[in-house]
Amino acid sequence: MTTVAMGSSETAAPVAHWQGGVSPFAVSWQKLMMWIFLVTDALLFAGFLASYGFVRLASPAWPEQNEVFPMLKIAAMTFVLITSSATMATAVGAAHRRDLKRAMVFVALTALGGLLFLLAQATEWATLIAEGARLTHNPWGPAPFAAFFFMITGFHGSHVLIGVILLTVVALRLWRGRATGMGVEVAGLYWHFVDVVWCFIFPLFYLL
């Protein structure tokens, strides 16, 4: 920290504070960077869902989700994602206890959950494309329905894919004894965010 000449004790405290003497959030830089990224990413999804809501409310008709989507499969995908969040939280807890073997097992289970989710989503996309759904065409009515479906679930799915890759790397690093508790926790924050986004997409797109 740069030394600053102080004229009095009144000016010393705020100068020390704003030069980094006190950490206002009291978290590591890795965690803070991840939180900043997650907030910006959340705003992006908020924009997507808000535009979806606008078009949905402004449309004279909208397809019945029960007739378009296999709800049992969507419920199973939701179950897998929520369970993967629980396994990820367990992995973070294990990493903080320095139980790296348990952390590795639970990170690997989380990645497996993400992979299952992606496989289910890929088959769902394939089914809808086979039935004629495109970015510019929707066989069940207004075209924006299919466009929003592919855009929102595709963007979320790409996050899941990145998460699976990230978790695989973390699991390998844990296996080699090179991962830190902070590394596992930061990866966990990202994975829970993916689950949080699905908590919005599932009811807003598939249920209501």
Binding site: F25, A26, L38, L43, M88, L189, H192
Partner: peptide, 27 residues
């Protein structure tokens, strides 16, 4: 999920408010 899985309940109010206000107020 935010409170227990992302451990926000254990963080400082400054971080909690920054995250929650930034996202929810904008949304």
């Amino acid at each position: 999920i935010g409170a227990w899985y992302m451990h926000l309940r254990l963080e400082r109010a400054a971080l909690i408010l920054s995250v929650v206000l930034a996202t929810f107020v904008t949304a």
